[in-house]
Design a protein around this nucleic acid. Structure first.
Lengths: 341, 341
DNA sequence: AAATTTCTGATTTACGTACATCAAAAATGG
DNA sequence: CCATTTTTGATGTACGTAAATCAGAAATTT
């Protein structure tokens, strides 16, 4: 049988009330007594029964997810996953609220973060836009002892407790490796398509991609980056134009969202050119494109895992607990035609 | 506030005792009354507080993991992960026991399974060896209302509740796709290395691999499968011999364990031949080989995820509950040099 | 209608922890 | 050594559910 608070009391030769004071760091215990109790806790190997504790406390975790607006499948998927998490609220003792802010808009994000102060919030998750003022706003929350995790896009240099997302530099390098190997020594130009260089995840993907390309595939030349703002329409136009303007393009790397537009342009302009294409984020559109051969590989981050991980980490952090690092590492999924879920 | 059993009682106009009888399917309730209560449960949207219920029941989950012996890194990793899960027992109300059986030995596995009858077991996980007698032994457990999940290797056709592992046909196809694309149109022979055709996962990987190769990369010829019994020594010998015997080999697919031997042979015999190699299972050996370029891609199943998933599913099934399918799907990880964790 | 049998209600205890209150004991200051 | 402050003990209630008991009500049988 697992030891309980009664066992601690017996082992330490103190009363239950004193054990409780030590366990919940309430005042009114001499240091010697406190140490005696702590020793007993270690000795008998007591672990607090979190379920019982939460029951007694009537604890709920009001969590806030700050998400950018955005009309692309990835963001839609992310919203859907957060809403899924909401449906599990009763079971998980969470109360999740979504705060929507304009994308790529640091002041709006800062305002949303600052608004949390004084509210009843057990933790916050945000898709970070990389800007100094966002960093300090996050730090203010952390100072206010509110757990913060970044989602999808990180905010290095800030005091956020955790990042629930993939390593985007590694993602860029991986994309380069796949594209380079798939092209099997051919020589030509590569078009890179991004959403916006204002978000850290896109910058990092490009950084990793460009670095590995330069180092290992010198026969491939990177064309200037096209910024499609994660918007299918803009993206479609840019790609069509690029493909029409050059016959040397043999590969495409799409590191942002808005792949609906990319795919449309590829089908219209790229047909029969033998393009090798690597894109990010598995959506219904990229899935279909993988299947019909328009795209050769898709790198993906599982939004569901990211959201569930964020919730677990926020709860654990709010309780001052640790978490299983391996379980909370968000992996970079690589999909080809054959391993689609 | 979440509705409680008291709210059900009030809503249905019955007493708490009756609600309890309905909730825990105890006898002594007329059908009309039972339906009244069930309607009330639906109406007010009651969800049982599992934490409180488990507390009241003093529930613990005695789980058994039946694992094959095996001196390869993957099995070592699997054991380590199960032991990790044991250290979390106190928190998760589990009591995990490992039963070790000889690998590739159906009768031993059957004996281990049958031994569980009558024991206090809330669920069992096993690495299945594919044989009819194993199937019926699993079915006997399921008939005895003991939740069963297969781990790593499935047992289709049996009544197991869940499979915590990857889709191995898809894994084989994916390996073929990567190898085929990486070889970029070159013509030559491919050596395939397996552990044993007695286990379903190896058979399935080969099946997927051969099918896709034949369909999409006809310029690549598959050599007869080498069976290394997941043993580094045997594997090393087989590979050295094969490489020495032919200069037409341009690719290797290692679909089992025992890659330590493969890598040793490649370094000794394959150096400078420009071999493209795809292997399974990320271990310290395959990781190093990826990094130094001996292996080009590694397909992996995360043993930690598999074990944690098995535990979650067994507990949920024991409670007659469902689980989040997306969370319990074990993904096929693809690693190249650049996205190693 | 009486005698059974089957349901239902009321109440209590328990699980492991949190939290509050009040009295008693011990330590500290002067 | 007394007065004061600090520390500790004893006890009770609560969280939401499970499980048991026993009395009483309703349904069924005779």
């Amino acid at each position: 049988m697992r030891p309980t608070v009664y066992d601690i009391a017996a082992a330490a030769g103190v009363s239950l009330a004193t054990v409780d004071r030590v366990l919940n760091q309430r005042p009114g215990v001499r240091i010697v007594t406190r140490e005696k109790v702590e020793a007993a806790i270690r000795d008998i190997g007591y672990v607090r029964d979190v379920a019982a504790a939460n029951l007694a406390k009537g604890r709920v975790y009001p969590l806030v997810f700050i998400l950018p607006t955005g009309d692309n499948s990835f963001m839609h998927g992310l919203y859907a996953e957060v809403r899924q998490a909401m449906t599990r609220s009763a079971l998980e003792r969470t109360e999740i609220r979504i705060v929507e802010v304009p994308a790529f808009d640091p002041p709006a994000l800062v305002a949303a973060l600052d608004a949390l102060h004084g509210q009843d919030v057990a933790g916050a998750a945000l898709v970070a836009t990389d800007a100094p003022e966002v960093r300090t706003a996050v730090d203010r929350l952390v100072d206010a002892r509110i757990p913060v995790v970044t989602l999808v896009s990180d905010l290095t240099g800030s005091a956020r407790h955790h990042y629930a997302g993939v390593d985007n530099i590694a993602a860029g390098r991986t994309a380069a490796r796949l594209l380079g190997r798939f092209l099997g020594g051919r020589k030509g130009d590569i078009t890179v398509l991004a959403g916006s260089m204002l978000v850290r995840d896109h910058r990092e993907r490009l950084e990793g991609f460009a670095a590995l390309m330069a180092a290992e595939f010198p026969q491939l030349r990177l064309l200037p980056v096209l910024e499609g703002r994660d918007d299918p329409e803009i993206t479609s136009g840019l790609v069509s134009e690029a493909l029409a303007g050059s016959n040397d393009i043999i590969g495409v790397y799409s590191l942002g969202a808005g792949n609906r537009g990319l795919i449309r342009a590829l089908k219209a302009t790229g047909q029969g050119r033998g393009l090798t294409v690597v894109a990010h984020e598995l959506t219904e559109h990229t899935r279909a494109a993988l299947q019909d051969g328009t795209i050769d590989a898709v790198l993906n981050q599982d939004a569901g895992h990211e959201v569930r991980s964020a919730v677990r980490v926020l709860k654990a952090t709010a309780d001052g607990q640790g978490f299983i690092a391996g379980q909370e590492r968000i992996r970079l999924d690589i999909f080809v035609k054959d391993n689609l879920p």
